[in-house]
Simulated assay, not measured.
Amino acid sequence: MDPMTENASKSFTAEINLEKLQKIAAEVILPGRFIFRPLNAALELITSILAWILGSSLVQKHFHLMLSGLVLFGPVLSFWVSKYSIFANGNHYLYRKFLRSTWGWTCILTGSFIILLSFSARRSISLTLRHLSRIGLAGLLWWGCRRLLTLLENAAGACYEPLAPVQDTQSSASAPPLLLLHEDQTKASCLKANMMWRGYEVSQETLILCLSCLLLVEELSVFGRHLAQEKRFHRSPSAPLRVLFLLCVVLLFIWMVLLLCLLAYFPAWPSQQLGGALGYLGWRSLYQGWYRLTPSEGSPGLPGEGLFTSTDSDKHSQ
Score class of each variant (00 low, 15 high):
residue 22 Q to L: 03
residue 30 L to R: 13
residue 183 E to A: 07
residue 6 E to I: 13
residue 135 I to W: 01
residue 39 L to E: 02
residue 122 R to V: 15
residue 33 R to D: 14
residue 301 G to Y: 10
residue 24 I to Q: 13
residue 286 L to N: 10
residue 151 L to R: 14
residue 46 I to D: 06
residue 101 S to F: 14
residue 81 V to F: 01
residue 273 Q to D: 07
residue 254 I to E: 14
residue 101 S to V: 08
residue 92 H to Q: 06
residue 75 P to S: 01
residue 227 L to I: 15
residue 196 M to E: 14
residue 19 E to D: 13
residue 16 I to E: 10
residue 263 L to N: 12
residue 152 L to C: 04
residue 168 D to C: 15
residue 92 H to T: 11
residue 63 F to I: 07
residue 251 L to P: 11
residue 51 A to V: 00
residue 294 T to Q: 13
residue 88 A to D: 11
residue 124 S to V: 12
residue 217 V to Y: 14
residue 13 T to Y: 06
residue 52 W to D: 12
residue 296 S to N: 12
residue 188 A to G: 04
residue 251 L to M: 12
residue 21 L to Q: 14
residue 100 R to V: 15
residue 106 T to A: 13
residue 286 L to Q: 08
residue 201 E to A: 05
residue 21 L to D: 09
residue 170 Q to C: 08
residue 159 C to P: 01
residue 49 I to Y: 00
residue 257 V to E: 01
residue 172 S to R: 13
residue 233 F to Q: 13
residue 31 P to I: 09
residue 252 L to E: 05
residue 74 G to W: 04
residue 102 T to V: 15
residue 294 T to E: 11
residue 254 I to A: 07
residue 42 A to M: 06
residue 19 E to M: 03
residue 189 S to T: 14
residue 262 L to R: 07
residue 162 P to F: 10
residue 230 E to L: 03
residue 116 L to F: 04
residue 149 L to F: 04
residue 90 G to E: 08
